[in-house]
Design a protein around this nucleic acid. Sequence first.
DNA 1: TTCATTTCTTACCATACATCAATGCACGAT
DNA 2: ATCGTGCATTGATGTATGGTAAGAAATGAA
Lengths: 196, 196
Amino acid sequence: MSLNNFKIYLNDKAGLTDNDLQQLPYIPKSKQFKKGQPIIGMGQVCKDIFFVEKGLLRQFSIDDQGKENIIHFAPESWIVSDRSSSYFNQSGDYFIDAIEDSEVVVLDERFINAASEISKIYRENNHRALHNHVRNLQKRINLLLSATAEQRYLEFLKVYPNLSLRVPQWMIASYLGITPESLSRVRKELAKKHFK
Amino acid sequence: MSLNNFKIYLNDKAGLTDNDLQQLPYIPKSKQFKKGQPIIGMGQVCKDIFFVEKGLLRQFSIDDQGKENIIHFAPESWIVSDRSSSYFNQSGDYFIDAIEDSEVVVLDERFINAASEISKIYRENNHRALHNHVRNLQKRINLLLSATAEQRYLEFLKVYPNLSLRVPQWMIASYLGITPESLSRVRKELAKKHFK
DNA sequence: TTCATTTCTTACCATACATCAATGCACGAT
DNA sequence: ATCGTGCATTGATGTATGGTAAGAAATGAA
């Protein structure tokens, strides 16, 4: 419960000084989530931002055929939220749940608004982070438009190093937009290549 | 050169009052671009935002095999920019060019920063617009992960109504992540279905 | 207009990935 | 240990989309 990662985030990424922190309405606490436990469900309006102190979350949608599509993973020190829902007050299109037992800091609207009021730096960093998010999403779109399953898998390994062992393969497959069977074959091919 | 759409944008979408406008360092002018003319090239650092007063732009990247991938189209009153490049001062990953003869308002860093300083509403709207952008990108990823070429084409028709006749089919195909030949076949199938 | 170039369509075959089904393996519950 | 359940692998086959090539149609230039 030490919230080390979160403190680093507040200082380094968010840019909030100790002085700023004292002006906030409250200091966020973390919540525990068990493996498999939902953090938000589809259809809920979600105004919170989730900071992952420890563990691993995933954000995904479920399409008409009932198939899960994983938008992204969030390991330690990453942030997730259903921004579409939070900003437009519409019911969200996404689920978030825990892949591992996780410790998550929940930042609600009040906290975020207060931090934005208090600190220009926070505002700017927030904006920058959003731009970075857009950058990543566009890159993902590019890959989905043009890359093969193998290329997308290799990119996944780059974007999420160390995650390939923590995430079950069928989830990775879902993230890549292929079936678990296909991913298995891709991995087999890659293994073959590396022995040559 | 009346900049009607742009004025509507400044008032309605950006939320800048007449008073705000007078405080700005300058009032942006529009530039003309001929069909096919580049607006920014890959590798350039781009700190500008482009508002389309009239005409039609596209944003795209070019992958290793030299294939163009269209990220999105921007008809009248839409905005494009290479946000990844503008915010991180890195060379951009994208091209923007004109699909039709176009009239484009170029908003540079100075303008955007000034407007952000002057108006809290502008800042908030800007932020909201970014969130909306993220929402759209995520939706696009979802489609690319799970939908067939036909479903993606139907979605394109919804997102960009009236554009299917203005954009050459090979560009639509590029946006959808399929070949022009496949799009041709998809359209044929759809026509067949509608006659029954 | 006429000619040249680009875009669209169609046909045929190739390929990547999906689907289905069977098997094996790991891990937790009892 | 034993069973059950979910996950990963493998093979056989199906299907959507890609690649190539040719001709038709549209567009643009002279």
